[in-house]
Amino acid sequence: MIFNRKAFLAAASLPMVLGVAACGGGGEIAVNGDDAPPVGANGSGNIVAISGAGATFPAPLFQRWFDTYNREVNPDVQVSYQSVGSGAGLEQYINGTVDFGASEAPITDSEDRMKSFREAWPFEPIQIPITGGHVSFSYNLPGVGDQELSLDREAYCGIVTGEITNWNDPVFAEANPDIDFPDLDITWVHRSDGSGTTFVFVNHIDTVCDGWEAGVGTSVDWPVGIGGQGNEGVAAGIQQNEGAIGYLSYAYAALNDIPSALVENNAGNFMEPTPENASNALLGEEVPDDFALLVPDPAGEDAYPIVGLVWVMIYQEYESAETWEALRGVFEWALGPEGDALTEELLFVPLPDELVERIIEVFDTVEAG
């Protein structure tokens, strides 16, 4: 199928989001807290507990989805999600210790994870996209406010490869004639854990930066910089160091008021990292049968260039029919109109209706009970 544009409603203001408690370097999202409706208020009182783990990238959206579903749709379904990074989440998925995993990097035949899954299970993994997202260059640069910094490809490639080390380098001046850059060392901040955000980011960097030699993966050997655990750790590294710049899920950066740069795209245009510009990167892209769509350098004139999907990994078979039906209900709701409204509000990219129809067909193949 081909991605088509879906109606997008820009959020007028950034919403308040409940914090994610620290848990093993990431966090855990749990619903049905002290002020939740009493058990059985709108349901049977037979609680179904669902667990997931993985990417920090979609954690703010998952938090809102799962909390809203529990409070407003079915209080008998409780979803907890460990925001531990894609790599750790996929390990838990393969080990069968969670009901679903989440990652911005799909499992492919060439990966060791696919081999590990096949050794552990008598069926193939199921991975379905659940939302789209994009990665920002977010920074802490005195005198430069939100959305004022523009980065051309020479500039950001030089930063990540370590070839450009100070903000007074002339490379920044052409795209930013109104900024008086300080004589300040650049501190590059990157992920230290296995991360789908890293995969999306370096997939783009590997495509456009001639000096990049670390390849593509959820973890790479960075030539320069300091590491942080999860989006949370990278954000902290940026906020605590003047002159720092790093990569974050844009939704995470925006919701935490961390400035993000305009980035030069394939057509030579400087694009704001808005969800609408990110959705432009997916227009006309062919989605393969296994849903493993990668867009390392979209060609559209209005496309933000660092974009990826978030996949959830489910099993072909579940021992409990009750667990699977509850999980399916959550995901179908999240992919529907009410879930889409929250997706847009939190600055992620909803999936088009045609793709959602394909996902529902995959749900029909899962066996349970």
Rank of each mutant, 00 (worst) to 15 (best):
G284M: 06
E119F: 12
F8L: 14
A88R: 03
S249T: 08
N266W: 04
G215C: 10
P60D: 09
A368D: 03
V356H: 05
I238N: 00
I126Y: 06
S86F: 13
P337K: 12
L262W: 03
W311H: 09
S192I: 13
P129E: 00
P142I: 12
D340A: 12
G233H: 06
A368E: 05
Q127W: 02
P298I: 10
G33M: 06
C157E: 01
A22V: 10
E174S: 09
S116A: 15
N70E: 02
I128S: 00
N256A: 09
I359S: 07
F62C: 15
D35A: 10
P275Y: 03
V310T: 12
G19Q: 15
I186L: 01
E354R: 08
Q78D: 07
E104N: 15
V17D: 06
C209S: 04
S219F: 13
T161D: 08
E367W: 05
P275F: 08
G329T: 10
D206I: 11
Q229C: 13
P58W: 07
I258C: 00
G228M: 03
A321C: 10
G233P: 03
P60T: 12
K115A: 15
W333R: 02
T207E: 14
Q78F: 06
D183W: 03
E276Y: 09
V48N: 00
G227W: 06
T187G: 03
Y156F: 14
G96E: 09
A175W: 10
G215E: 05
T343S: 06
S83N: 07
I179P: 09
G87V: 12
D353A: 13
A299D: 06
I179Y: 08
P125Q: 04
Q240V: 09
A244P: 03
D193V: 14
V220Q: 02
D193Y: 11
D290I: 08
D183H: 08
E213C: 01
W167T: 05
P177I: 15
I94N: 00
L294T: 09
G24V: 13
T207M: 06
I205S: 02
G19W: 04
C209H: 02
G211S: 15
F181P: 01
N166V: 11
N269L: 02
D67R: 13
V234N: 02
A21G: 14
A41C: 07
P275M: 11
A88C: 03
N140G: 12
S83V: 15
A214G: 06
N203E: 04
E264C: 01
N70L: 00
I359D: 05
E357H: 10
A175D: 12
A12Q: 11
S279N: 05
S110M: 12
G230P: 00
A10F: 08
D185M: 13
Y69N: 01
V79K: 01
S83Y: 02
F117E: 00
E119H: 06
G85Q: 02
